[in-house]
Amino acid sequence: MLKLEIVTPTGQVYAQDVDMVTLPGTEGEMGILPQHAPLITTIGSGEIVARRGLSEDRILVTGGCAEVTAERVAIIAVFATDESAIDENNAEEARKRAEARLQEKLSPEETALVQAALTHSLNQIKIKRRGR
């Protein structure tokens, strides 16, 4: 059993015991099983897939770090949304907001942040549409 924890600055998003975790590392996807060697990695944007028995939980993350030890996977992420909690309208609105912001004059670091928000909302929309 692996203990999976996902925490964002606005609170804890996920805490469950799972059988296997797939992480979107910046260097590519990685599957984590119990008794994995200790690992610390940065995370890009994508889905974390947590397998519990036959069911799967998918959590969308954008940007973060993960620490893997033999019995635990701890993830801190800037954005994270549980897939079942994705609201397409909200995501669509966030996308529009981010796109509007990009039209404005922004400093480079602000642009990077808005880009991250945009990626996160686009991913949300993509996942929601794929499910249909």
Partner: peptide, 14 residues
């Protein structure tokens, strides 16, 4: 803490 972490992409990056 556990020892001998693997760092990805690198210690510096993480």
């Amino acid at each position: 803490p556990a020892r001998d972490y693997i760092f990805e992409p690198s210690v510096g990056g993480v």
